[in-house]
Design a protein around this nucleic acid. Structure first.
Lengths: 221, 221
DNA sequence: CCTTGTGAAGGGGTTCACAGCA
DNA sequence: TGCTGTGAACCCCTTCACAAGG
């Protein structure tokens, strides 16, 4: 039931959760796949197919009850509990992550932060005491942490990730600009704004080229 | 030549650039698709196919000259020039973005920052003066900016994005936790660490379930 | 009538496998 | 021999289209 779900589907589920949460805040009662699709720029068929991997949540002729579908999806994604995470790297980026207010309401709690910088160690950042990275393994194992956030320099990232994997972390949110090597049972999501920008400059460049070619007029509305 | 390239391919090109840059720093001369694939966890065939959309960059029996391929890819992605961007939203997140040191070496320069908060306006953050958002349109048009970074609250994001699109911005790096509505000729990349975490909790939850079922009956039917 | 759920069809990206060539 | 470049096969995701049912 769980093993055959396409990864792309899993990537979309949080989008549904986010949209449904907003709809619930706006007291929306029922929504059709058509309407949800318009909000998310996803085809209605796509949404219905995605949901059908997990069950039948809708009412024919009506649509989906927002609160019910939201609850089911939160259940499916494991969001009905709180998740503890550790942060490695408390430099500028790491401190920004610690003070990011979006994690807590979503149920993610950073319970420990580590660094190698002796100037940082012992200090408190947003209520979290920065600990020496030598304590990393003990802390993770003691609390059976399965999520880590990596915000160390690129040169250190693979080493840190190896250590995290070694002590049982199964999910890594990686802010370092590297493509880490990890075993298949560990999930990594990379956050790299520069990569994101670079995928867009490709299109920008081609827009400009098109604009410079008088005969290359294609985009008409 | 340009319009038929799958978007997934464009998403991978920056990964190649990043890996090749590192290889160049390490004075690597030549690399095969096999080796590059191991670094990036991508199949060699995938890499060769991706590159073949743009030309023939390798040497049979040898592989790819790192510096040459890097230069070609940078050319393809439009990275041989500097790109100016504006930032909208200079709250905690926006300030962290302004002080992020990764943009400049990659050739991205934030040339203006805007906010609605009168306490912020006029102040300088990392050398950039914060301007009143009412100046947004003029500034973008004057300098023909095509990239914007959005770091405003979710409730404001769509409005801000509408304004950006309105005055000709074609690429948006969106840090707000929303799925924006945009016309087809504008590219958006969303950065949302919470969504990233939520896709991983799905797997974590299922790992735990599997662990709790002695027979580990996965893949029913 | 309206919208879901879903087999089936379709489309597009990945992988294969080998010709080509240094 | 070693590795690229690439048509073709393959596979998987998306979209279609309609039965089902409120």
């Amino acid at each position: 039931m769980v093993s055959e779900i396409p990864e792309v589907v899993v990537l979309r589920l949080p989008l549904y959760v986010r949209a449904l949460s907003r709809l619930q805040d706006e007291s929306a009662g029922v929504i059709s796949s058509q309407e949800l699709g318009e909000l998310l720029q996803i085809t209605p068929a796509q949404i219905r197919k995605d949901l059908s991997y997990f069950g039948r949540f809708g009412k024919q002729g009506k649509g989906y009850t927002v609160s019910y579908l939201l609850g089911e999806l939160r259940q499916i994604l494991g969001l009905e509990r709180e998740w503890s995470a550790v942060l490695v790297g408390v430099g500028r980026l790491g401190r920004a992550i610690l003070s990011y207010p979006g994690f807590t309401p979503a149920g993610f709690r950073v319970v420990a932060a580590f660094d190698v910088d002796t100037n940082q160690i012992g200090k408190r950042v947003d209520g979290i005491r920065v600990r020496d990275i030598s304590e990393l393994e003990d802390a993770i194992k003691r609390d059976a942490i399965s999520i880590a956030i990596v915000a160390v320099p690129a040169s250190e990232a693979q080493r840190v990730i190896d250590r995290l994997v070694q002590c049982g972390v199964k999910a890594i949110l990686n802010y370092a600009p590297v493509s880490p090597q990890i075993p298949g049972d560990v999930k990594v999501r990379n956050v790299d704004p520069v990569l994101a920008l670079q995928t867009m400059t490709f299109h920008l460049k081609n827009l400009e080229l098109a604009g410079k070619r008088p005969e290359g007029k294609r985009g008409k509305f």
